[in-house]
């Protein structure tokens, strides 16, 4: 009985946390990507969607794989400890994936802004140009 409740609690918290982080990423990442692609909204939305799909797949995949436990769950205390263990790992994986996404965003942004970067050094002098 305890094991069934543990699985239910673990699944509901993990899936809810994954959905929450993915929604946050989707909402806030859009602005970032719009800046990266210089206002090209369809492209920004498309890349945003693809990133979120990848995020869901990796996280839900991990949640599903980590569900099974070989430990004996006979008391309420054991149930809480096992659920806490597993949810802690899921949160760490979510955090890692989240930072990976942020890294991808910032890298994309840097690379796309490169052609528009001003010279890295201020000029030594100004000269009049003929035309």
């Amino acid at each position: 009985m305890y094991i069934l409740v543990s699985y239910m609690v673990y699944l509901s918290i993990s899936v809810a946390a994954t959905v929450w982080v993915a929604t946050t990423l989707h909402r806030n990442g859009r602005l970032f990507l719009l800046d990266v692609f210089r206002g090209n909204a369809p492209l920004a939305d498309s890349v945003n969607h693809l990133l979120v799909v990848g995020f869901y797949l990796v996280n839900l995949g991990y949640v599903a794989l980590a569900l099974r436990t070989g430990d004996n769950v006979g008391t309420g205390r054991q149930a809480i400890e096992i659920v806490s263990d597993k949810i802690g790992l899921v949160f760490l994986v979510l955090g890692g994936m989240h930072f990976l996404n942020l890294y991808v965003f910032s890298r994309l942004r840097r690379r796309n802004q490169e052609p528009y970067q001003a010279p890295p050094l201020s000029p030594d002098l100004r000269v009049p140009m003929e035309n």
């Binding site: 970067q117 010279p119 890295p120 050094l121 002098l125 100004r126 000269v127 009049p128 140009m129």
Partner: peptide, 20 residues
């Protein structure tokens, strides 16, 4: 290095602008 806008970099700093 002189830009078409009239900015000029001379000597060692001009190298960095060439790479830029």
């Amino acid at each position: 290095v002189v830009s078409d806008e009239g900015d000029a970099w001379v000597g060692d700093r001009a190298w960095v602008i060439c790479l830029w």
